[in-house]
Simulated scan of single mutants.
Amino acid sequence: MSDSTVTVTEAADPAPVPVGPFEPFGPVGPVERTPAPTGRRLLRATGATVAAALVGVVIGVGVIETRYDDPAPASAAAAPTAAAPAPTATPTPFGAKANGNHFGSLRDLLLPVPAGYALGPDDGGYGNDVELSADQLSAEMDSDLQQIPKEKRDKLRQYWEGLHVKATGVRTYKTGTDDLVIGLRLRQFNQQEVQKANEYTAVFTGDTGLFRIGPGIPGHPEAHCYLMPAPPSAPIDYLECSAAEGDLLVIMSAEGAAPLPKDKIVTLFSQQLDRLASPGASA
């Protein structure tokens, strides 16, 4: 992920003002990369820290699967026919409500590892396939907030509580040739704040001139992608995409040998967004 920090103004109605592509789960920066077997350093793994969110409206949507047993054969004495069993309902383990809120494990909502990929390297200290609860994220934030003055700390804590954080899901992927690593993160929090975060990132990465414009995501106008600044001769390139899907902020990072295979990256991000589409996200 790209670097970002959160500052607090001294205005009458203070609000955190992110600097850099907005990361609502705190200042996130590159960590030390682990070299792939080829010797390339591929993933800018990131850690989640200060300020962010996941709203906890976990509303289930059931899919009814109706099954009936074969009717019992009629006897010669015309015995009474057994009543068919009542239909049974099998709840979906995860999905999306019509209002855009998602339910179920974020690990289920994350895109399964597609054919041609394997789980990638660890994303910071969180591993390569994990869900972090609101309590875990809050405890980590509190630890990081000890480094700043108390008055700013209290304002950031107030901001965090207003986001209604629920969880973060993380999964990384790598190609079989180890020349591309992709990280996906699902941040679940208040829908209005998710939308603001995505809009802010689009404006910041599009209007400052600091980033190169990335590919579009067909069928998902709310998604946007951008590439990090890099000289034309750089051997490694880095691309990031962001999208808002209801109460989920979806962030994808991709790093690999230049030029990046943008078609593969777009396809994978599209598959992730399609999986989250509401209503009725499913396996």
Rank of each mutant, 00 (worst) to 15 (best):
M1D: 14
S2E: 13
T7I: 11
V8S: 12
V8R: 15
A11M: 12
A11R: 14
A11P: 04
A12L: 15
D13G: 08
V17C: 08
V17P: 06
V17R: 14
G20M: 11
F22L: 15
E23C: 14
E32H: 06
A36R: 09
A36E: 10
P37K: 08
P37A: 02
P37G: 02
R44W: 12
R44V: 11
A45H: 08
T46H: 01
V50M: 08
V50P: 00
A51T: 09
A52S: 04
A53N: 08
V55A: 10
G56S: 10
V57K: 07
G62W: 10
G62L: 11
V63T: 14
E65I: 12
T66R: 12
D69G: 15
D69T: 15
D70N: 15
D70A: 15
P71T: 11
P73S: 08
A74F: 05
S75W: 05
A76S: 08
A76N: 02
A79I: 01
A79M: 05
P80Q: 01
T81Y: 03
A83G: 00
A83Q: 03
P85S: 02
P85G: 06
T90H: 05
F94P: 02
A96Q: 03
N101E: 07
H102Q: 02
H102W: 03
H102V: 01
S105G: 02
L109R: 12
L109P: 06
L111H: 10
L111A: 10
L111D: 05
A118N: 00
A118W: 07
G120E: 07
G120A: 06
D123K: 00
G125Q: 13
G125P: 03
G127E: 10
S133C: 13
E140V: 00
L145K: 03
Q146F: 00
E151N: 05
K155C: 00
K155S: 03
Y159L: 10
W160N: 10
W160P: 05
G162S: 06
L163S: 07
A167T: 00
T168G: 06
G169C: 08
G169V: 09
V170P: 04
R171F: 06
K174M: 10
T175K: 15
T177W: 09
T177H: 13
I182K: 07
L184N: 11
R185T: 13
Q191N: 09
Q192V: 11
Q195C: 05
K196P: 08
A197V: 13
A197Q: 09
E199C: 00
E199D: 15
T201I: 07
V203S: 08
V203R: 14
F204I: 07
F204E: 09
D207W: 09
T208M: 09
T208I: 06
L210M: 04
I213G: 05
G214F: 02
P215A: 05
G216P: 03
E222M: 10
C225W: 05
Y226E: 02
L227F: 08
M228E: 02
M228Q: 01
P231H: 06
S233T: 07
P235F: 00
I236L: 11
D237E: 15
E240Q: 11
D247V: 13
L248A: 09
M252W: 11
M252R: 12
M252A: 15
A257V: 15
A257T: 14
A258L: 02
L260M: 03
K262L: 10
K264S: 04
V266Q: 03
R275N: 04
R275S: 10
L276K: 06
A277P: 01
A277Y: 04
P279H: 01
P279A: 08
G280L: 03
